[in-house]
Amino acid sequence: MEDARSHITGYKTYAYIWACLLLLTGLTVTVAKINFTGFSVLICLVIASIKALLVLMFFMHVRYEGAFLKGVILLTIFTLTAMIGLTFSDVWYR
């Protein structure tokens, strides 16, 4: 935890992340205009997840946090994925 508390992210790092997020937004809009039919949803969700990961890791500082907090976050994401996955196993194979 000492790391998370003492680490100050530089303005430049944030600027890079911001630029990446804007580029990915542009990319996802472009991709959506080209019709990849079935893959469009998947590509847009992958791009959204990369953006969310950047926000989580850098803006929300998770990269510098301890193992416990990282574990809690992973567990929550796992729970959510399980909820969605199990529901779809019902919706698709009913």
């Binding site: 996802t28 809009v29 469009s40 847009c44 969700l45 959204a48 926000v55 989580l56 929300m60």
Partner: peptide
Amino acid sequence: ENTGLYWHFVDMVWIYLFPLFYLVT
């Protein structure tokens, strides 16, 4: 810092809402 976490979380939710409602047609 905690306020920031909240704001970033709200941003993250929008990151998913945007493609799901506006882009994926």
